[in-house]
Amino acid sequence: MEKVFTIKKLNLKYGEKTALLDINMDIPKNEITALIGPSGCGKSTLLRTLNRMNDLIENCHVKGDIKYEGNDIFSKDFDVIDLRTNVGMVFQKPNPFPMSIFDNVAYGPRCQGVKDKKILQETVIQALKNAALYDEVRDRLKESAKELSGGQQQRLCIARAIAMRPDVILMDEPTSALDPIATAKIEDLILELKQKYTIVIVTHNMQQAARISDNTAFLLMGELIEYDKTDKIFSNPAKAKTEEYITGRFG
């Protein structure tokens, strides 16, 4: 199993409040890893730590190691911009920029200095195709992204992440604001994306975790209670707490 991230003894505090406690886990390449657990368990914090989004939060203190492709992401020499280029993120609520569909997807490559119109055109179209959105928007690339439906906006955000040519895509409850059909489309897309990218997804929907992920990590009050193959977690978890949570006995 090839690992993209190796997490060792990760501890994170917001001020005095412990959010993550001694987390040890590996994220395998080209697999979907789901982070589950009740609200406030630390799953979104863990996700955001993987591309150092927590750096933006005041009073956030991190201890321990996270290695991305063997490199320590907290070392002084490590380029955070590079990390965030390689490790893209999709949020709970679709957040298209107030610009055209085309410009939304082209935004990242332009920031990276791509100016050639032909290259930009190709990058945008390919990203939209990979995000299973191109066929629906091919005739209105110049229209505002705000005109798209919620599900289309979320796929646009995925296309925007893909346009940066990342290795990993982090998804923080990407379907929680979507209806069942839009959710199904995103789930199909996630399974498709697995061929090219490593995906880490935070979800409150346990059926979703069971349907799409290869590995599932269960967190509770900042601790990693259990981390195993998804089939094992949902059929015969090793820990009683995991079983109580996934069977809906608490949470």
Partner: peptide
């Protein structure tokens, strides 16, 4: 109820 784990078993 979409049971899992011990309930599904």
């Amino acid at each position: 109820e979409q049971p899992v784990a011990k309930d599904l078993r």
